[in-house]
Simulated scan of single mutants.
Amino acid sequence: MAERSDTEEVKLLGMWASPFSRRIEVALTLKGVPYEFSEQDITNKSSLLLQLNPVYKMIPVLVHNGKPISESLVILEYIDDTWRNNPILPQDPCERATARFLAKLIDQQICVAAMKVVGKVGEERDAAVEATRDLLMFLEKELVGKDFFGGRSLGFVDIVATLVAFWLMRTEDLLGVKVVPVELFPEIHRWVKNLLGNDVIKKCIPPKDEHLAYIRARMDKLNLKSA
């Protein structure tokens, strides 16, 4: 269980299909922190969301004893600093720095490159796929000889990289292109199997069929806008 009092108020403003929201659920569940989940409509933002995150106006937002914390990577570090059991960041300063670097690589580069795959066709899509694969190769090399990015247990980078495992890789069938083929990324595929064997991950990832239906609808909407 979490080390701090169960009487604390913890609320998460999120959205069920968001990888950024789901990673906060993973961290809170791993720590054993009870929380209230407030589902948000990202197309019609609530006054509460706008009040709690007036700068970015985005989910997720963690509210701890009335104080809001925004941005998923910041929230993850806050959770780790606040509830010290089951640490998700490495204790070694160099390993912590590496974990932060990889997390930013995932959010600021891999996610951006992968989104271009969705929005492109023909040669432009091929170029976007190659750019995404080049970035994913950094993760592939990092996983050699490890069950998880941090070693033998679920950690910070694994939680962030669920974006790759359960969003990017699920989207492949809808796109009709394998962005992360097993022959190029055997370590990533092995890691995904390890994730699927983790009880916390299984509890916190979106149901596959419902999730794919949501992604398909989003992609159809994007295609209509670009037509």
Rank of each mutant, 00 (worst) to 15 (best):
F166C: 09
V160D: 03
E172Q: 14
W167T: 13
V164T: 00
E172P: 11
T171V: 12
L163G: 01
D158E: 01
A165F: 11
V192G: 00
W191I: 08
H189D: 09
V180H: 15
W191Q: 08
L163R: 00
M169I: 07
R190K: 15
L184W: 15
L163H: 02
V180N: 01
G151M: 03
W167K: 12
E172I: 14
T162Q: 08
T171N: 15
G150L: 11
T171Y: 08
K193S: 13
T171I: 08
H189Y: 04
W191D: 04
W167D: 01
F156L: 10
P186V: 05
P186W: 10
F149W: 13
L196T: 04
F185N: 05
I188K: 06
H189P: 12
T162C: 06
L196V: 09
S153P: 10
G150V: 04
A165Q: 05
V179W: 10
P181S: 10
A165L: 04
W191H: 05
V192N: 00
L168Q: 10
D158W: 02
L163D: 00
A161G: 04
V164R: 01
L168V: 04
V157H: 12
N194F: 07
E183Q: 06
R152M: 12
H189E: 10
V157P: 03
I188G: 04
K178M: 04
L196H: 09
V164L: 08
P181C: 09
L168M: 13
V164W: 00
R190Y: 07
L174M: 08
M169E: 08
E187R: 15
L168C: 11
L163A: 01
V180W: 00
L154R: 06
W191N: 06
E187D: 03
V179A: 07
R190M: 10
K193T: 14
W191R: 05
L174C: 08
L175C: 07
T171M: 09
E183D: 15
V164H: 03
E172K: 13
D158Y: 06
T171R: 14
G151Y: 02
W167E: 00
L184G: 13
L195E: 10
E172S: 03
L195R: 05
L168H: 11
V164M: 02
T162G: 03
L195T: 11
L184E: 05
L154Q: 06
P181K: 15
R170F: 12
F156K: 15
E183L: 06
T171L: 11
V157C: 02
K178E: 08
